[in-house]
Amino acid sequence: MCVECGCGDVEIVSVEAHDRLLAKNDAVARHNREHFAEHGVLALNIMGSPGSGKTALLEATARAATGWRLAGVSGDLATDRDAVRLTQSGIDARSITTGTACHLDAKMIHEALHEFPHLPEIFFVENVGNLVCPAIYDLGQAANVVLLSVTEGEDKPLKYPVMFQHADLVLITKMDLLRALPEVSVRAMRSAIASVNPVPPVLEVSARTGEGLDAWIDWLRLRRANAVREEAVS
C-alpha cells in the first residue's frame, strides 16, 4: 500500500544495486585461494576442449616422477573415468560429477577440498572439457593452464577468445600427431594465441612421447616456488 496516503496503490522502489553476479563465486574462490596459500599448495585450473589431452597431460606429469605429492579433482558431466585414470597414475584424485553443469565453480572445489585432509604440493583441477564456460569461473587457482591440441585446428583461439584471454600458460598438446597433419602449422596456432593474448608462455608437448614435458615441469617448478613463498608470507 502507498505509504503516503494509504490509497492502496503500488509503490515502485528503484534500487541501484551494482551487484556483480559472480561475487558469491568469487568470494568462495578467495577462500579457496587463501586455503591453498596457507598450505603452500600450487593450485592449477586445467582447461581445454573435450579430448584436448587434459587427463593424459596429468598422467604424464605423474609419470615424470618429480617427487611432488600430486592431487586433484576431475570434473565431468558423467562418470568418474578421468579420476580413476588419475588415481591409477599415482595422483590422489576425486571426481566431481556435474550432471548438467558445463563448468566447475568455486563452491564445488570448496566442497571437494573437504575430502583432502592431506593437501598435496600441487593440486590440479581438471575442469569440464569445454572451451567456453569454465573460463569465467574463478576457483581459487594460482594459474589457468589452457590446452589446445594440434588436431583442434589453428583458429580455435580466435573462435573462443575468452578462454585464451584467461590463460596464464598455453600448452599445444599431441605434438606427436603433427606429422599426420601436414596442413596444421604450429606457428599459425601460436600466432592465433598471441593475437588474443600475447602474455602467456606457449609450450609444445606430447604426453605420449614426453616431448616438451621438461619445459612444463620447469614451469611447474617455478610456480611451485612462488606457492612456497606465499605460504611463508601468509
Binding site: V10, E11, I12, V13, S14, V15, E16, H18
Partner: peptide, 9 residues
C-alpha cells in the same frame, strides 16, 4: 545487476 525496480505495497 545495475538496477532493480520493485513493486512494494
Amino acid at each position: 545487476l545495475e538496477r532493480i525496480e520493485m513493486e512494494v505495497g
